[in-house]
Nucleic acid binder design. Structure first.
Lengths: 191, 191
DNA sequence: TTTTGCATGTAATGGGTTACATGATTTG
DNA sequence: CAAATCATGTAACCCATTACATGCAAAA
């Protein structure tokens, strides 16, 4: 139940319309909390109904017109409450690790190519993060807000670095693996 | 859509009943693909209906009686197909990073305690992984299956290590942070 | 024989995903 | 003006989560 709070954070950083929010989720917030435009519109409606945000008084709120929202005091209070409240980490879900475990039973056919593809994706993501770091966190800026935001970006950078290392390690293991050999059950024919 | 494949993998490793599967998910597979017993029972029903698994011919399949399942050839084929098929990584969702970003806007009150709590949880998890590593992967065993499974466990260990490092870094930043200072908006009173 | 724990489920709710719908604005 | 694009939505489906229900077995 964090999407509403992600939206509140984004709106506090800058009042926006639904599509602007969607863009910003694609660019920055979505790196650790993704959302589609449908989720965002639905959630904006709820947050407005609960009195946590309001539509900025604009020209004519017709369909197809931009409608920007801003956070009300009640919304800021709720976000502060949520931020400071104790929350248990959600259990992970990683399909790639699952597939590796499955490969130990049914064989590794096809997996290596996808590992390589994932490696490329993570390298691309890491490059993107590094660009953001250079652009948004030059050596000078180190106010408290900057430090917190930099910390978040650092987590992203280090996570991508971890995956790149791990995938490299995994691929080198694959290179030494007998041809799907260990995946036979004892007594099963060799192909 | 990986739960059915997680179950197929578990059943190939060892035919089991619903509750046995639930236990094994809690202990080992759940470390990277969690599932509740309700999910598992529902999925067992579907997999059986699709002809990928079957209930082992047991005594009387009455309610409250154990019912063990085994994987049929079609199930093994489907698991091998899925394991080798290209799949895009799902976008991450990390509430803790989201809260840090929110804290940059509404203040850090309460967050530090929860970071410490998370640090403890990750340290406990890491210790558990290390025990498993010592028990299940002694220096001798290095068949292909062992290597693949060890690789998966290594990912878990390194991920926990990463979070412990990052949380330590974050907490040291908090120590240097002015008292929720950077979280004021310009012009707002200092509290 | 009531209670506790084991084992398998059902039902309700809510979030996430995908596909589609509709009005407005820009561009060829 | 026709087509593409922008912007805001609706609807349906699936999965996950939570709470509850039922039957059986062993222990107190």
């Amino acid at each position: 139940m964090s999407l509403p709070h992600a939206i509140l954070t984004a709106l506090l950083e800058k009042p926006s319309s639904g599509l602007e929010l969607t863009r910003r989720f694609d660019r920055s917030i979505g790196y650790f909390w993704s959302a589609t435009h449908q989720q965002i519109y639905r959630e904006l409606g709820r947050l407005e109904a609960e009195g946590l945000i309001r539509a900025l008084p604009a020209e004519q709120p017709a369909r197809g017109q931009k409608k920007a929202y801003e956070v009300l005091p009640a919304g800021r209070t709720e976000l502060a409450r949520w931020t400071g409240a104790a929350q248990d980490p959600k259990p992970h879900r990683d399909a790639l690790l699952l597939r590796l475990r499955a490969a130990a039973v049914v064989g590794t056919a096809g997996l290596e190519d996808d590992l390589r593809r994932h490696l490329e994706l993570h390298e691309r993501q890491l490059a993107e993060y590094r660009e953001i770091e250079e652009r948004d966190f030059p050596p000078g800026a180190d106010g408290p807000q900057d430090r917190l935001r930099h910390l978040v970006l650092r987590a992203g950078i280090d996570l991508e670095t971890f995956w790149i290392q791990w995938l490299g390690h995994a691929l080198s293991e694959f290179a030494h693996l007998p041809d799907a050999g260990g995946t036979r059950r004892p007594g099963e024919p060799r192909a």
